[in-house]
Nucleic acid binder design. Sequence first.
DNA 1: ATGAAAGCGCTAACAG
DNA 2: CTGTTAGCGCTTTCAT
Lengths: 368, 368
Amino acid sequence: MNSGAWLAANVYDDVNVYSREIAVPHFDARPVRIVDLAKELGLSVATVSRALNNSDSVRAELAEQIRSHAERRGYVANRLARSLRSRTRNFVGFLVPDIENLAYSIAADACARYMANSGYQLILAISGDDPQLEHSALRSLIEAQVAGLIVAPTAEMTPSTRALLTGSSVVEFNRTAGLSKYAVLCAEEAAFARATRHLLDLGHKSIAYIGTTDSLSNGHERLAGVRRELANAGTGLDPLWTRLLPPTEKDGYESARALLSGPSRPSALLVGSSNLSMGAARAVREMGIHVPDEMSLVVYGDSRWGELYEPGLTTVTAPYQDMARRVTDIVSRMVAGDGGIPFGRTRLEAELVVRRSTARPASESAGG
Amino acid sequence: MNSGAWLAANVYDDVNVYSREIAVPHFDARPVRIVDLAKELGLSVATVSRALNNSDSVRAELAEQIRSHAERRGYVANRLARSLRSRTRNFVGFLVPDIENLAYSIAADACARYMANSGYQLILAISGDDPQLEHSALRSLIEAQVAGLIVAPTAEMTPSTRALLTGSSVVEFNRTAGLSKYAVLCAEEAAFARATRHLLDLGHKSIAYIGTTDSLSNGHERLAGVRRELANAGTGLDPLWTRLLPPTEKDGYESARALLSGPSRPSALLVGSSNLSMGAARAVREMGIHVPDEMSLVVYGDSRWGELYEPGLTTVTAPYQDMARRVTDIVSRMVAGDGGIPFGRTRLEAELVVRRSTARPASESAGG
DNA sequence: ATGAAAGCGCTAACAG
DNA sequence: CTGTTAGCGCTTTCAT
């Protein structure tokens, strides 16, 4: 029976048919080390190490022999020892508030895949937007001797956390707290100014904004964009129609319900975070508000699900793929000790995907 | 000027105002080691090490003194050295085909957060559903001396990859290839049988199925569930109305378009993967097929975006949160060397969330 | 081209 | 309680 058939026959069984076979390896339970290989071959550890590292100072034939023996014995190098001795580092730390967020999972995906090519591994850490957790996560990452760090900082990063980062190579991602000379960000302010202008151009006068708290760098910038454009238009952002909240679906849902249940309703709603958008869109649907006839709606985030909403949602879409590519590029050069990294703090443009959730306001509400 | 104000004043500037301050730390660029602290305090490295590890065999007052000195000097332990010497392992490997998939990002999130509490760090690796990448990723994880491994295996895991896993503690997640006696899976077959029954009960006779390739364990199971129920009903699954594809949005979109462009159209479409569902739902909208009047639609995945679709999508929802919790629980016990882990291979129930995308077939197409 | 020996930073074993 | 010594598994001088 070939292994393919054997596989096909058993692979979906719930019973653990392999347990006995797996549990009894031919060689010792303790992993085989270089010294073991050296003894078995009657060589010195130095020679074996060199052969395994493809050093050219080992006779080709012997090197091949050593490698095939290592393979046969199931030798797997201990990177901890290797790193310790050779002072090389193979880890990259990736610290984000929340990996379920597409901005971060796309970046993590790109980084992990790409860095693996050059022998690096990604250590994932989640801050949950909590400065305390952020501190301990960063400490742990530094303890793991990371070669570089990708960080989306929390709103209230503590001074001691900043101190911790002294001497580390960090690149900021998606958010900034002025930690590094490298950052990959989105041109949030411009994007939200454009979205606001889009609504103004359609004739909206009463525009509500639900966004993230001002202390997050991108929350700050998005709000600034909305404010700026509204100020230009001479309207200004009505505090009563502004909600600044933590970026969660629940907060989006609840604040949208609250905002839209009042006696007067804005003619347009602009939402400044993907999680908040998810919640707000759900609230709008649940409340039976007809979009765009009764109200225009602009959301933020991945544009895919905006297509599925009825009618298609006008969406501010951050260039997640490009941002991921860019941060991967920077961190890979950084850990390679590359001198002239040709990027500093970059802001990539967001796109305003206009769909059918935005339209001219109904006449009776056009005035405010 | 206190640091808070200093922060607030500069934090959003794009110019790198901190670079000089950050680049010139007070102490040496080389990180401070235990031996440095020991010299500075006139103590032995052993005592310092013990104090730093909160061993109770150091006089409390002295220990406190050592710790505060370490803190002052910005000491950060080198975990590589610590692990090497003490034979403890602090890493957990997490290997998935794709971290953008919610099933995996939710699990990664839960694991990283929870394991961090007990001092573990998650190394993230992406296989991209490629058996070669899977092999090298697993090798790298083992080289990093992981204490445990969470794996969603590819469809065609190679025998040498299986051999590599010998002696490692692994728990399978979401997919299985019979690697371990621990697995956290979804009861896929039952879920899809139920979804199929739901359609049959509504009176559908011509049901199309778009799912993932049969060699993936969950693709296999979902298909089996559909087949079983259709066989029970005496209908059987029409090969012409069955598409088995890799789990990508693009494949879902294209296959749905192809399937639904034919001369005769099924009265119901069942989609067996979240990415495929995304694509299929988009295709259905684009083609202007009216759901559920012209066709019923059942999708798979996160139920959130199904709420936003018009009309609400009937969705097979895997219990991602529960699965994440469960796998986290298992792996944490596993790496702690906990003996009697009270779970083996568990299958959690999926839920069929019935919304408005499924209804009785229009009379003219009820017959097939 | 190969081997002997030192040592990365840390903790564990053994003294005292 | 504290110090001395050894050594985790590996790479890297420095010899030969």
